[in-house]
């Protein structure tokens, strides 16, 4: 696709300057504000509920803002679970997987998109087809393999499989690489540049935007991954954040104040990361837009 071929995207700013504010525009903004707030309402409710005492969480009809602000939930959450440790565990697993899987996905995608080799199409179809396998089914054989490798209750059991296999990542990156015009590469190849050189100096830099997007999705998936850590990790010193949060759910009844605080603690960094990273995507596109 044409993600990188275009150089003349109209940047939002210029658009705004060009036209005076019209009633239609105001209506648009009004509608978008309402929709965005409605969409975010459950998140906001979760966030504000984390500062409510128990009886306010369940007040009927529910109020968004706490009446009596309290950090009791956070105190309970921090007393009940080692969030510092969990934060660290989750961060290094998510960061490592994201970094490694972006690299391996981009590499494989490059091979699929740009190198002619026997069985390329079939192999790619195999990659695609694995996306259609419900993951719950492979968990037991995977557990046995992890046992053989001696990786049970270590972060490796989570890092290595996700770093070395991502059909979605390969698929997405291949689509982007196929959209990049070949002329530059072909010129470089005629000059004697190797595939590795072309990949590292030409392809990877051009993949900045899609890699950022894929990176966000990968990080998000890892950060929220519950089933894998649940099955493969045993010692609570190795637990990731979703496991710590789930402790507050209990077998019969939940500890609601701690639960709201814990879920907010886990979700907030994601939203912050997205807020920062999306600016980067926008910047990248605006840059290319200003060039023409």
């Amino acid at each position: 696709m044409s993600a990188f071929t275009d150089t003349a995207t109209r940047s939002p700013e210029t658009q705004l300057r060009r036209r005076p504010v019209r009633p239609a525009k105001l209506a648009l903004h009004f509608a978008l504000v309402v929709c965005a707030v409605l969409m975010a309402l459950p998140f906001l409710w979760m966030m504000f509920s984390s500062f409510k005492p128990l009886d306010e969480i369940f007040r009927q009809p529910p109020a968004l803002l706490p009446e009596n602000w309290t950090t009791e939930g956070y105190q309970k959450a921090f007393e009940g679970a080692d969030f510092v440790r969990g934060f660290w565990n989750s961060t290094y697993i998510a960061v490592t997987v994201t970094a490694l899987s972006l690299l391996t996905s981009a590499m494989a995608a490059y091979a699929f998109a740009r190198i002619d080799f026997r069985g390329s199409r079939t192999l790619f179809m195999v990659f695609l087809a694995t996306m259609m396998v419900p993951g719950q089914l492979t968990i037991i054989p995977l557990y046995i393999i992890m046992g053989w490798l001696g990786w049970i209750d270590t972060p490796l059991s989570l890092i290595i499989p996700s770093s070395l296999f991502s059909a979605f990542g390969v698929f997405l990156m291949r689509q982007y690489i196929k959209g990049i015009p070949r002329e530059l590469e072909e010129a470089a190849e005629l000059d004697g540049a190797s595939k590795f050189r072309i990949f590292t100096t030409m392809i990877l830099p051009l993949l900045r935007t899609p890699l950022t997007a894929l990176g966000i999705f990968t990080f998000l998936g890892q950060w929220n991954n519950f089933f894998g850590p649940l099955i493969f990790l045993n010692s609570d010193a190795n637990f990731t954040l979703p496991l710590l949060v789930n402790q507050f759910k209990g077998q019969y009844g939940a500890d609601w104040t701690a639960l709201m605080s814990a879920t907010t603690l886990v979700a907030a960094p994601l939203l912050i990361i997205f807020a920062v990273a999306q600016r980067q995507i926008v910047d990248g596109i605006a840059l290319s837009g200003s060039k023409s």
């Binding site: 290094y92 209750d153 900045r208 010193a237 190795n238």
Partner: peptide
């Protein structure tokens, strides 16, 4: 970009090793 990427990956590898060590004593 390449430099960033490289440091990123090595940094990540280092990161992966550290907790693995920590887990041995922390369990």
């Amino acid at each position: 970009r390449r430099a960033v990427l490289r440091t990123g990956i090595f940094g990540a590898l280092g990161l992966a090793a550290a907790p693995a060590l920590a887990a041995c004593g922390g369990g």
